[in-house]
Design a binder for these strands. Structure first.
Lengths: 362, 362
DNA sequence: GCTAACTTTTAGATCAATCTAAAAACAACC
DNA sequence: GGTTGTTTTTAGATTGATCTAAAAGTTAGC
């Protein structure tokens, strides 16, 4: 070959384009493009010839150029509000796995529950023309945001929390049902004074837990009703349990907004000289990996973050493929993971470990 | 305005381009482009006029198109090997914060320590023409990969582990020093038989810990040397400690590859009827949020994942701005976070919580 | 009023793909 | 050989921003 088919960029990288391959294979650019996109129009002989040239020249597909003309970018934006929380780590792993199977890649942003940060990221995503957004809405998100994103031409799946009016695409756990399961368990163990340590923020995931608590109280005809609202860190768990246990009558069991609060509650009980699981039963929510590690091991409402991530990603891909399809809600049922924090069913040493080993994500 | 300046895409979205703005403002496309990029060439009056048109028409910058002609995409690829691990959650939060400040966004992938998955993702990143890569190399990564990425014209910063030959860009914690600090602490408490529960994988982060252990044994002239190599989950911690404690002589203290192994070791001690911190001291590595939560609270070598993430991202941005600059190694010094697992300095109830509250990332 | 030296603006090519509509190649049939 | 009907291939327009090189507009100096 005497012709020079490649060029160099400012850093000395050779850049092979469709045109170079077309010349090398002796066909037109159009044909090469068809081969790349696996069009059935191309004759077998031609396809093989072109594929050989692609290999020979070390061609790299340029998605930037393709995006300009085409309509898809094979990219998604993902917004979470606390990536440092192990729950979201598992969820992102699930998203990653589902997207990877379909050749998609995702931008990730951590809103830190700030609507302003969230907005900045979404606008950047728009400039990058992502095909869709997985949005765990920051607290205080304007409900019209979902419509706005839709008007931008991007599929939007709300995850864990929802702020818009139905119908919308949504993937989450059934928090209402989860709290009811925990209540049933406690009532079954003989508890009659069950308190709820919940979040104070105004969004769906908090609301659903409250509703579950109230509905279950009614269902079991319990008259003791006590709940505290606060932020949801370990410290808050300590503060809340210390307040509750000095009341009279004190609760005999608490259900917590998440595992962090539950860990705090157990620490708080110990500080008061009380034994978690004996003097007061404790149930958490999420079943993070660390739940099996506390002392006593924490009974928790398993919300399956990895599975939620997978479902959310798959729903987004469905919506991208069919933008006008009917909106879907994928709401997974939680499962109560029973351990020792509601009265020792088993001694500490028999803590279930195998289903929480690192790398075990279904 | 009688002219129709907008068009609609297949979903009914209006798409405003430079040309539309140029017409609206009565200038050329070139001028609008200069205004967008804040060029000092444009006269003040013109700039204001154009900016008004941009606002009026609701223009959205199209990065896909800009990328085609320009050289930067303002995107980065991030590869970690276990996003479900809280350590990486915190690290990714640090990366996100540093990139956000500079208008960058990042693609995230979870290699699950599979070089094949890692390779697939990197090739996708190449198609998307990211400006750089933050790579926590999967175990078994070919050392030439770093050069390959460099030849692709992308900045590559290795994070936590390094596989290439120097010089390279690298951000991590000083694991050698961290282990030495832990050893000093234990020796200061009177321990003479200190074992090491380490990783079996062959990469730099594991090697450096071993070297720290050996160097410190020599420095303190300790003759007892005992170490186990294994994978690094909680279960492995249990298995390893159970083996060690049945030996004679048994160690009086262990230093663990990470906090998960340390948690496992403490659980294992309890199973044997031994008390962690009394019958055997335990030190972990990383100081994840959960370290303050265990019983006893875990003394741990704090490796500051959030800060490592920030530093790695900033280093990548420096390298993108100056591709031919000299390679840098940013190696942060760890700090030994002393709690109760090496003999109770304080009662459990005084566990330090404030510096581990959610959202507190320096 | 003319030239020189700036400052500001612009036309048109370019980047690397996709898409449309038409041309070319080939086969089958009368 | 010409017509019809497929199957393949292709030229050229298009996408939206950037870049280059030149044109147009200003100002200053003599």
């Amino acid at each position: 070959m005497s012709q020079d088919v490649t060029r160099q960029d400012q850093r000395g990288n050779t850049s092979v384009t469709l045109k170079d391959i077309a010349i090398h294979a002796g066909v037109s650019r159009s044909t090469v493009s068809l081969v790349l996109r696996e069009s059935p129009l191309v004759a077998e002989r031609t396809r093989l010839k072109v594929q050989r040239s692609i290999k020979a020249l070390g061609y790299v597909y340029n998605r930037g150029a393709a995006t300009l003309r085409g309509s898809r970018t094979s990219t998604l934006g993902v917004v979470v509000y606390d990536i440092a929380n192990p729950f979201f780590g598992a969820m992102v792993a699930g998203i990653d796995a589902a997207l990877n199977r379909e050749g998609y890649v995702s931008f990730l942003a951590n809103s830190e529950d700030s609507p302003a940060r969230q907005q900045r990221f979404l606008e950047r995503m728009r400039e990058h023309s992502v095909d869709g957004i997985l949005l765990c809405p920051a607290e205080g998100t304007d409900p019209t945001l979902i419509d706005t994103i839709d008007n931008w031409g991007m599929a939007c799946v709300q995850v864990l929390r929802h702020v818009a009016e139905p119908p919308f695409d949504y993937a989450s756990a059934n928090f209402h049902q989860g709290v009811c399961q925990a209540m049933d368990h406690l009532v079954g163990l003989g508890h009659r004074r069950i308190a709820f340590l919940g979040g104070h923020s105004e969004h769906s995931a908090t609301r659903e837990r409250w509703q579950g608590y109230k509905a279950s109280l009614e269902h079991h005809q319990l008259t003791y009703q006590r709940s505290l609202r606060s932020t949801v860190t370990r410290c808050d768990g300590i503060v809340m349990i210390e307040q509750l246990m000095t009341e009279s009558p004190a609760p005999t069991a608490v259900i917590c907004h998440n595992d962090l609060v539950a860990f705090g509650a157990m620490l708080g009980l110990k500080r008061l000289g009380l034994i978690p699981g004996v003097d007061c039963a404790v149930i958490g929510t999420d079943d993070v990996e660390e739940a099996s590690l506390s002392d006593p091991a924490l009974t928790s409402i398993a919300t399956h973050p990895y599975a939620i991530g997978e479902e959310a990603a798959r729903l987004a891909l469905r919506r991208i493929a069919n933008p006008e399809g009917t909106r879907e809600q994928v709401v997974l049922s939680p499962r109560l993971q029973i351990r020792n924090s509601c009265g020792a069913a088993r001694p500490t040493s028999n803590v279930t470990l195998s289903n929480h080993a690192a790398g075990d994500h279904g």
